[in-house]
Write a protein that binds this DNA or RNA. Structure first.
Lengths: 265, 265
DNA sequence: AAGAGACTTTCATTCTATGAAAGCATTTGG
DNA sequence: CCAAATGCTTTCATAGAATGAAAGTCTCTT
């Protein structure tokens, strides 16, 4: 089985290659921008931010609106209701999500901790599935939350073994997205990543204070783009206690990889 | 405040007018088709179903994939993980969703029944928010579910007062989407709609057996595109009991309309 | 192993997407 | 209340993007 990722421009574009389907790419930029700015946007804002002319932006918005991907109130645009059925379709049909449910359930039951599945998207990761453990996490993190790759066990493990050039990009993107302070450097990132030869990542108080976490990547062909994590509030676990779950986590990752591999389409 | 809906082609297109942004529109068609067929689709399937050439379809898929809207495993395509952050953005920022929460909560508390908010999308409606009542509904219906306009109180009330020509389209779309039997006619639809002058719709065993429901439309300028419903399983309510909640429902609709009207952007 | 089917690339042509500029509308400031 | 400014929308000529035929490549089937 091969998971193809074209991986060219999910994040902020630089302008290197004049890629295909310009109007469609631009429409997706507008759509992404509407999410990034989590408040209604005016036409002129979007045109400026996305670097395109007013008429073009307007035309794009109109089409997206026709399909419910964007909704308009007065002069402001925002994400529209059509994304809900789409998300439902994803959650119900993607083998990553459906296959992970029982696996996460089992590892959560075995360890008593919260088990989460993340998938990489551009230079971020998003929470795709979660099964709560005995000790609830203080913060709520609904499905679909965008999180940095640079912070937190589940993010860092996805970067293990990546070449410096790529880490550099990731570091810059994390700054651009506001996940890291403006001075964040490649060296700082590498200092946090797991040692070479280590197949898990650990984090304490990294992304959220009072939260410990270990993560393992799902091994598909090529660079990993999914990871599963065990998470616990500090008051319910120690570093050692959490790391004791790593063998289970490892098994869960292997089981999930196997499930995905065996899926027939 | 004005809610603009361009309302041209959210559903299957006929081919009347040579609308703008062809490539973008076609991309949205592909995206919609991937949701409709809730199973992985091959390139050739999509090309055939959407009526476009293989190269074009492939190019569209590649761009959508770059942005995570589509994911590919082997030779099959499906909705991708990027829809999750988008859905989150919608649920957290759309005033319809955020304003409705307290309103639904109140009406659910007052009546003891499940309160739901639907919005119209093309020729269907989708569940956008729900607060459960005392008697849980037997079926689970997650957010984002696509439901027909022709069946169920919350659907029918959105069609009250619509001209026959529009009802005709709706009836045909319901058949095309598999919501209604192939013989479903305009006359059958009109027989179920609320009498002129009635501001609520009632349904019993219509969309789901064992479920009673009343609904009221949210009154924004122009034709309504949202409705709120009270729903209960038969064993927990009678028709009269449910209809006793109509005044509360009416008040809730008015309050929500007011909240939406007052939103400043 | 050979053939059939499906996917991908190339390329010349068409027509779509584009932005400048003008025309409206709406908001702001006097 | 009017004037000026700002923001939105439409029009239109042009560039170049999007398109599908056809050839090329890969993959699965028999």
């Amino acid at each position: 089985m091969t998971v193809t990722s074209t991986q060219s421009g999910a994040a902020a574009e630089d302008g290197a290659k004049p890629s295909n389907m310009r109007s469609l790419s631009r429409a997706m930029e507008v759509f992404a921008e509407l999410q990034r700015a989590d408040r209604p946007q005016r036409l002129s804002d979007l045109a400026r931010t996305c670097g395109m002319s007013l008429p073009t932006t307007l035309r794009i918005l109109r089409v997206l609106q026709d399909f419910g991907m964007v909704s308009q109130i007065d002069k402001t645009y925002r994400i529209g209701p059509a994304v809900l059925p789409a998300a439902r379709s994803y959650l119900e049909n993607d083998p990553l999500v459906t296959s992970s449910r029982p696996v996460l359930q089992q590892v959560a039951a075995q360890t008593g901790m919260t088990a989460s599945l993340y998938t990489r998207l551009g230079f971020e990761r998003i929470l795709v599935a979660r099964v709560d453990g005995d000790a609830p996490l203080r913060y709520d993190m609904p499905l679909g939350k965008r999180l940095p790759l640079t912070v937190g066990a589940a993010g860092k493990i996805l970067l293990a073994g990546a070449p410096d050039s790529h880490l550099q990009e990731v570091a810059q993107a994390a700054v651009a997205a506001g996940h890291e302070p403006p001075t964040f450097s490649l060296a700082e990132l590498k200092a946090r990543l797991p040692e070479p030869g280590t197949d898990y990542a650990y984090s304490a108080d990294e992304r959220a204070t009072g939260v410990l976490s270990v993560a393992i990547a799902i091994n598909r062909s090529g660079l990993p783009s999914e990871s599963i994590a065990l998470t616990s509030p500090v008051e319910a676990a120690t570093e050692d206690g959490l790391k004791a779950g790593i063998p289970e986590l490892r098994r869960a990752a292997a089981r999930l990889a196997e499930l995905l591999e065996g899926t027939v389409y």
